[in-house]
Design a binder for these strands. Structure first.
Lengths: 336, 336
DNA sequence: AATTTTTTTGTAATGCGTTTCAGAAACAAG
DNA sequence: CTTGTTTCTGAAACGCATTACAAAAAAATT
């Protein structure tokens, strides 16, 4: 195995009988280089299997063309991702970044504090950040943004958020869910989810709004659940059924996994869904469509999400300060 | 917004009243630097919010501490990931890399040909590759490996594979599935999946082996299906029921999604699962456990997988040539 | 106290592109 | 055939950290 030295721009320059800057210009499609010269250089470069050393390039240009993406693996427990939605989002972002020739640096879970984020920027590991899921880190993200860090976050923003937020229209989603449940004849609606997350709080608000718009009285209940996992939700459902005096006739869950867990618990308790209780989930994860009964849920346009996140960040990198944005959010009515 | 110049090692050197190399040594915990000096340097560095410029570092060290991970988004269609398994694997790899302080460069789908791979290495964008899912790219990967590219692949390797393969023990998995179906009284077993993928072919072989070990005759059938998506599988199931004369009493699907699609199709055709047909899936995706009926499936230890993939690659980077490896593979018996 | 050895620090070179700026070549105008 | 432009190319500097090697400082030895 030969320890051969990598071919550098100098080598190409020598072989093509031009100077190093000319090679650089040729490779970068600079209009300053004559057509014939460029072709010669390109030919030599290709033939030598030459690829510009990205690190030298990044060093000199002070631009990495790399975006750090932070996935909140918090929802990732015991070997199983509770909510596959984030991964779909990642796929969308990945594709959108690819389209713009940006590399994607995936940030590991433990590197999730402000210092680690800052470090990636200071050390020029990436030009900007896409944070998928703000969780309870709004303060941290605000601090980070205030340092001037180019940052786009998937989630729901506070009115005074210092950073650009892209996300589902959670309030609308909640309202659509509520309207669906009411249309199904619901009078006692229950919401299950951790409303301390802004996104989820908004979904609940939307539900309440939908209820309040009816001329008749609608009771809205709130089942607090501080986990996104199926098992925890299933347990919570059984406990809820045990405790509650009057069962709801409509349930809106903060995500599909929880919705399905509740439906399972209902079924295991001989409660018919959607006969006795209608259920709406959130995210339209793949499973939702073929769960039994097929789950009614709120869908977001994930590809649009990825594209918008990336587009916003690029604008920030260009010095602009784009507004936050909401992604198309609609209800997918199925059996529940 | 001030366009302030980044703080460099020279700045730290000046402020700490030492030379640049001393700063470098201090930051890298070199034993060559005196304790007191190191502390002074570290203090200044911290106070200045200094972070080593990774690009200069990579350039000089000729080592990036970055691993490129290629996800086969081929299984990614119409906005939904058909098989969430790959993403769980990604999470495992991400974690394992994080533990070793390696960065993870996520490669976009379209960058999947040999040239693009090679380019990442030539341009020193990463030190090595982890390919998640070899698909039908064995030849490409062999070529790539032959160039000396540090490469580890998740999948199932040919005997003469030129690269290190880590994967589920697909043959064993298939055998376990077969044994389960036979234990349930199966005499006519059907396998559904695209056996042109080596992994899947092995699962089928395992099933056949299990059947052949019985003293009585077992028929094994093979339903070809060139898609991993739920919808396609559901259609295929209906078509299969339509065409086949004698229905199987045991079904082994190449993955959980397909298994669930078949079960749904069976149910929609008034065939009882597991009463009339037992079913086994593969991967133990989160949904499998709470599908109705709870799906029996083959589970692989995903965290082990991530760790092993990374460990093997690190050894390759150290100049060794580790053997391929199989991951712990077991059957999770549930209702089906 | 002088000398040797060990430990610590500094100087200079290096890794590889990009960019500034000056110079050469090609072309147009007079 | 100059002179003035325009177009193209090259020399040198720069971005920032690491490393080989030399030198200085400190410690150990005689």
């Amino acid at each position: 195995m030969s320890e051969k030295r990598a071919v550098t721009m100098d080598d190409i320059a020598r072989l093509a009988q031009v100077s190093k800057p000319t090679v650089s210009r040729a490779l970068n499609n600079s209009p300053l280089v004559k057509e014939r010269t460029r072709n010669r250089v390109l030919a030599v470069a290709h033939e030598q299997g030459y690829a510009v050393n990205r690190n030298a390039q990044k060093l000199r240009r002070k631009r990495t063309n790399t975006i750090a993406v932070s996935l909140d693996f918090g929802s990732h427990q015991q070997g199983h991702i509770a909510d596959p939605f984030m991964f779909e989002l990642l796929a969308g972002v990945s594709e959108a970044l690819g389209d713009r020739n940006q590399d994607l640096l995936l940030c590991a879970p433990k590197h999730n504090d402000a210092d680690a984020f800052q470090n990636i920027l200071w050390s020029r590991g990436a030009d900007g950040f896409i944070v998928l899921g703000q969780g309870h880190r709004e303060d941290m993200l605000n601090d980070f943004a205030r340092t001037g860090a180019p940052l786009v976050v998937w989630g729901a923003g506070a009115d005074d958020a210092e950073y650009c937020v892209v996300g589902s229209d959670n309030f609308l989603g909640g309202k659509l869910a509520g309207q669906h449940l009411l249309r199904k004849g619901g009078r006692r609606l229950a919401f299950v989810g951790d409303t301390s997350f802004r996104e989820i709080g908004l979904r609940y608000s939307g539900l309440v709004r939908a209820a309040s718009e009816k001329p008749y009285d609608v009771v809205t209940d709130h089942v607090d659940l501080h986990s996104f996992s199926y098992d925890a939700a299933y347990e919570a459902a059984l406990r809820y059924l045990d405790v509650t005096e009057q069962r709801p006739d409509g349930l809106f869950a903060s995500n599909d996994t929880v919705a399905m867990a509740f439906i399972s618990a209902f079924r295991d308790s001989n409660i018919d869904v959607p006969g006795e209780i209608s259920v709406v989930g959130y995210n339209d994860i793949p499973t939702a469509a073929y769960f039994t009964p097929r789950l009614t849920t709120i869908r977001q346009d994930i590809y649009q999400a990825g594209r918008v996140l990336v587009a916003k960040l690029m604008r920030i990198l260009d010095g602009e300060t784009p507004d936050s944005a909401l992604i198309k959010t609609e209800i997918i009515v199925r059996q529940t």
